[in-house]
Amino acid sequence: MRLLLALSLALLLTGCASSGTWGWYVINPATDTGWTNIKFLISGMGNTILISVIAAAISIVLGLLVALPGQSKKKGWRIVNRVYVELVRSIPLLPMLFWVFYGLPIVFKSMGLNIPIDPFWGAIITLAVSDSAFTAEIYRSGIQSIARGQSEAAQTIGLSYAQTMRYVILPQAIRRILPPLANQFIYIVKMSAFASVIGMQELTRRANELVVTEYRPLEIYSLLIVEYLVLVLVISAGVRWLERKMGSDERV
């Protein structure tokens, strides 16, 4: 990670040196235009984080709802789980985004519902659904990592399926589930860039808009990449902290 950061910095600096191709001024914080541009670019950060966080929160709940039928004794429920996971995993994000943003309102209208979908919720729904298939698989492996004897013991003291999950399985599975879930958040952050194509004012959209007015794609997209890099590095640091914490709990 640190190496990556150094590399990208080096890239930037060599760019600066050969100032023939590198127009430092567009993003030079010392000049007024540069600083205004940087502020404009970074102002997308709030939305990128916001849609990622909301999508992740929905995905965490949705993923669990998808994972539980996969643990059922009834074959029908397991099939529901498999179909959902396989289907959602196979759809590329961009077509799904178009379908949700342009197609879903038509479906709603044909059902007599008038639910407009704005870029904000269009992006969140798509990211959440797309991610939920992965989240569901994370839950599945976490739940399956808990020995069968645990749920059998819970059954013999009269706990229902829901109580067994709530009090016995999930509390034990959670330490194996949390780190990969947090890792999955990185996926959402990166995929949230697609929201720019339906007009969501996030990091990538801001960069695109500035490129149109400044004609400086190299500098602006370089800065964009650095923005994502910083965001992702911060999250990974958080994930590693979480992994250490979970790991050390396990040894007690």
């Binding site: 004897g149 645990q150 059998e152 013999t156 003291i157």
Partner: peptide, 13 residues
């Protein structure tokens, strides 16, 4: 379940 208790070889606490 609950009326018929069970003790397992592997405890399963």
């Amino acid at each position: 379940q609950g009326d018929i208790g069970m003790v397992f070889q592997q405890f399963n606490l």
